[in-house]
Structure formats: C-alpha cells, structure tokens
C-alpha cells in the first residue's frame, strides 16, 4: 500500500470562464495533516470539494488512495464513474463544512447514526452504540437527543465531526470548521480536531487558525489566485515565508 493518500497533479477547475484552480500540485501522505491557507476566493474550498467530487475537475489528475476521483482509467482512456461508484468512494471521505449542515429534522444521535444504517446497512442498535461512543468522544455525552437548533454552534460542529467519523473514513476534509463560531467556542472544536490528528487520521484542513496550523499540521500550503504559492512544514511557511504574498497574508491574519 502506498503512503500517498491524496495526490493532485496540475488540477484545473473552471466555473464558466472563471478559472478558479490553475494547476494545483500537492501530495498528502497517509496519517498526515495538511492545512490550506489563503485569502478569500483563492480556491481553497473548491479544491477541497474536488477531492470528494462535489466539483468535477477540468484538467489534471486527482486521486485519493491510489484511485482517480470521479473517473476510471482503462486502456489509456478515462471513463466517468457511475453515480453509485462516486457515492461509494465518498463513504470513505468525511467532510466537515463551515456551516455545519447538520440535518435539522434529526437529533444529534440520529444525525450520527443515519449514514451507517442507511448507507452501510449496519444494524441500528450497533450504530446507536457507536454513535454514543463518538458523541462521548467529542464531548457531547449529554446531548444525544438534542435537535441541532438546541445546540450551540460549537456543539453542532462537533456533532458534524462525529457524523463524519461514524463512516470510518480514511480521510477527513475540513472547510473552515471554526469560521462560523463565536471565539469562545472555537477551542472545543479545535481540541477535537487535534485529538483526531493525534489518533493518526489523515486530514486536509482549510483554516485561518494559524496557531492550530503551526501546532498540528505536518504541511502548510499557502494558496493564492488558484495556485500553490508556497508549501512546506509550518516552521518554514509560517515561520520564515519565502514569498512576499505569503508574508503579507500572514501579517493580516496574525
């Protein structure tokens, strides 16, 4: 088994005439945490969404765990994947959104149980037990039966993380998971993510939390205008940025 979890080579993405990703090349190794930084509109979310095929790339190669995203290659030709196969690959990639996107008509535990039962066909009681464990792990042991409206933003985001983990993903994608939170709630969510990183989960995190990136990331990638400006260990990119654009961005967010 190769060590590479996500591999992007010259990934391009256009929306109409607007070229948002202009050749992204990067590698995320198994068990590694990569933090993506960059100004608004630089294409961070778009790249993240390409990884689980919520957006389709226009050029380049993007693969997760050795398999192309959205396509199948045979005899030197690319074949679009059937919707069913795309869904099957997404099962193994967890995603956490800026706006949480919990299902409001279900309680916390129902949110966490839903996909294991409906998608993986696991038994309800088994899934419920597992959901309890996951909610305990993210510090919500007393909120099993709460509907999302009755939870704070930080609690909702932690339920969302538990919901993604319930599918036993091999890769977790986070799109600014703390940007919609009040400052005093950010810490709880970051703690959960730090724990997760420590447990060996492969993670790609779009964030503006420089402190988190410095402490947890193995690689920090700075993106601007649809290209990777600078990538490397946090000490280099955050501590001694080589590029002027990185420096000016960091001086604004720090």
């Amino acid at each position: 088994m190769s060590d590479v979890m996500v591999s992007a080579e010259g990934v391009h993405k256009r929306f109409g005439q607007n070229e948002v990703l202009k050749g992204i090349t990067l590698t995320v190794n198994r068990g590694e945490v990569m933090c993506l930084l960059g100004p608004s509109g630089s294409g961070k979310s778009t790249f993240l969404r390409c990884i689980n095929h919520l957006e389709q790339i226009n050029a380049g190669r993007l693969s997760v765990d050795g398999e192309l995203v959205g396509y199948r290659e045979a005899n030197g030709k690319l074949y679009e994947l059937h919707e069913r196969d795309v869904a099957r690959k997404r099962q193994q990639i967890g995603m956490v959104f800026q706006q949480f996107n919990l299902f409001p008509h279900m309680t916390a535990i129902e949110n966490v149980m839903l996909a294991p039962v409906q998608v993986l066909g696991r038994r309800r009681d088994e899934s419920r037990q597992r959901a309890c464990q996951l909610l305990d792990r993210v510090g919500l042991a007393d909120k099993y039966d709460a509907y999302p409206v009755a939870l704070s933003g930080g609690q909702q985001q932690r339920v969302a993380i538990a919901r993604a983990l319930a599918m036993d993903p091999k890769l977790m994608l986070f799109d600014e998971p703390t940007s919609a939170l009040d400052p005093e709630l950010v810490g709880d969510v970051l703690d959960v993510m730090r724990d997760l990183a420590r447990s060996g989960m492969t993670m790609v995190v779009v964030t503006h939390e420089i402190g988190f990136a410095r402490e947890v990331a193995d690689t920090v990638v700075f993106m601007d205008g649809g290209v990777v400006v600078e990538a490397g260990p946090p000490a280099e990119v955050l501590g001694a940025p080589k590029h002027e654009r990185t420096r000016s961005f960091l001086s604004k967010v720090l």
């Binding site: 919707e83 299902f103 008509h105």
Partner: peptide, 24 residues
C-alpha cells in the same frame, strides 16, 4: 448544503431525496 452533507456521507440521489430533502 443539506444535499451536499448527505452526498459527502455517501448517500445516493434517491436516498438524499427521501431521507434528507423531502422530510424537510
């Protein structure tokens, strides 16, 4: 975002419609 969250959990279009979109 509801459909996207459901899709990212690996649900197909029909399940998303039946379990997530229509109930809401």
């Amino acid at each position: 975002g509801q459909s996207e969250a459901a899709a990212s959990l690996g649900m197909g279009r029909i399940k998303i419609m039946r379990l997530i979109v229509l109930p809401q």
